[in-house]
Design a protein around this nucleic acid. Structure first.
Lengths: 290, 290
DNA sequence: CATGATGTCTGACTTTAGTCAGATATCATG
DNA sequence: CATGATATCTGACTAAAGTCAGACATCATG
């Protein structure tokens, strides 16, 4: 059974039984799965009852009873929301935090055990990232962030590392015109990170200049997220941000060693123009009027 | 959240919710999940009631009732086992087969939809194969097969393709000493395929000769299964087969462009020897006394 | 062929999950 | 401050899954 559909279904079977095992491990602490899921949702920082209900897809009556049972166990306390006394916020008690930590330890041990099965953990992780990104594709959020934020810095680091691998002469940020963070923050510009769940998987910078145009910089998509047309989404978001800032003309530079980038630009209304800066790395220059 | 454990857990979350969605699609035919799972197990060729119960992890009482409900629907018939009238065998009626086909169509459509999400389906499939092989690692079966079987021929085809990619001069089977299938069948030799679920993911041949030794040929592990120490398992199985055939001396040839193979041989008791054949491709020769 | 083991079935349960219709308190609005 | 909307809770239910003890037929064995 080697056709694509069979391979996907083989994966589904493998994963379904693994998920079953994962569930039963969550049952190991003498609490039904529903209650365990609520406890863990609270532990992971979801405090609003409606938010938890929504996240877990529960009926309000069921949710209420699950919360009550956790309260009876002394793991959770609820109180009215500060701004709106109809809403309730749940938080863990000291015992609840301990219990949550046990679940966390269980999950971590499980994850470590899985990684340990494989002598090439990095390949395994890359495959998992790819699949998780695909599965959560429609939930990839493009968030405007400070270019100095942890998520942005992670993306930039990966971006530089990849340039270093793909440029025959390597890549040294200090030789390139590294944009000032201030230029990629409102009101001069913007920096957008694509987040899949908690993992940053792509970014793009909009860098304001004093020359009547803004530049697109640092477009990067994680290997795990390629093929999802995320580059296009990031570019669209950057252009939207530019319009919002009243910018009418965009420019960018790139390198012919990154053919997929050039192709993306050409297919989305960018026009090749002559060199407009003296950065040593790029050899292709584009412009787009919004 | 970029550490390995967080990445595994992100994958788990993504996959858990996807599996949930998969389950609800199985509910779309107006039958509880338990009954649907039994019906599909039978459709996939599991006929022994005990086997199904074991596969699905069901209590015998529950299993019995689920079978009864499928019988009441006219989808399944049971009869006593030929050799042992205590055991029961279940099979699908004509209506049952139609119903099973509907589930199959649903699963296939789901798989196709998933593949369509991704513009680089081959990368996605490779990642799924890798994870499925890892998850089902302990269920990888080493089966002795005819070297002409479909599974064996698939492995050999992949093996030749990989040699073609990795040898600087390419690889042409007709120039190499392609072993006769008869030499890799009992009683002269053996051919072993590693099966993960329905997917062949590795092979090794034991080729009998008339020179007082047998040769190990065609050791191959699918990219999706590398890192699981499957090469070692295959070699162990081949050596066991050789012992079973009363063979006391093994030889093999390989190429220094395949360093992982040479390392495996050296670390498992093989000793380098001078060239013992005139095949143009190998440049390294090993021997092992059993 | 008696005996204990095995595989399935039935009856009588429990637990968990989920649904739905109100009840109650609070909020936003005019 | 009356009114409709919103968030949560309670009570009363159903469906599905799972558990357990014992009944029954059949098998392997000495």
């Amino acid at each position: 059974m080697l056709d694509p559909v069979s391979r996907v279904r083989r994966f589904n079977r493998a994963v379904t039984s693994a998920v079953g095992a994962l569930d039963t491990s969550f049952l190991g602490r003498g609490r039904p799965l529903g209650a365990a899921r609520v406890l863990n949702a609270i532990g992971h920082g979801r405090s609003d009852v409606a938010e938890i209900r929504d996240y877990l897809g529960l009926d309000s009556g069921l949710m209420s009873r699950l919360l009550r049972s956790l309260e009876d166990e002394g793991l959770v306390e609820t109180e009215a929301h500060q701004d709106d006394a109809r809403r309730r916020v749940a938080k863990l008690t000291r015992t609840g935090k301990r219990e949550f930590a046990s679940y966390e330890a269980l999950s971590n041990a499980q994850a470590e055990g899985f990684l340990a099965q494989h002598s090439q953990a990095e390949a395994l992780l890359a495959a998992m990232d790819l699949i998780a990104s695909t599965l959560t594709r429609e939930r990839i959020a493009l968030d405007e962030m400070d270019p100095r934020s942890e998520q942005a810095r992670h993306c930039l680091g990966e971006y530089y590392a990849e340039l270093g691998r793909r440029f025959s002469q390597g890549f040294d940020v200090s030789l390139s015109r590294d944009p000032d963070a201030k230029d990629m923050r409102r009101p001069r510009g913007s920096f957008i990170v694509a987040m899949s769940d908690t993992l940053p998987i792509g970014c793009v910078g909009l860098k304001g200049t004093d020359h009547g145009y803004a530049e697109i910089k640092r477009l990067w998509v994680a290997p795990a997220a390629r093929g999802l047309r995320l580059g296009r989404r990031l570019m669209d978001a950057a252009e939207d941000a530019a319009r919002g800032l009243g910018i009418a003309l965009l420019r960018l530079d790139t390198n012919s060693a990154l053919p997929e980038a050039g192709q993306l630009y050409r297919s989305t209304g960018w026009r090749e123009i002559p060199r407009f800066n003296d950065d040593p790395y790029p050899d292709l220059f584009f412009e787009k009027r919004l």
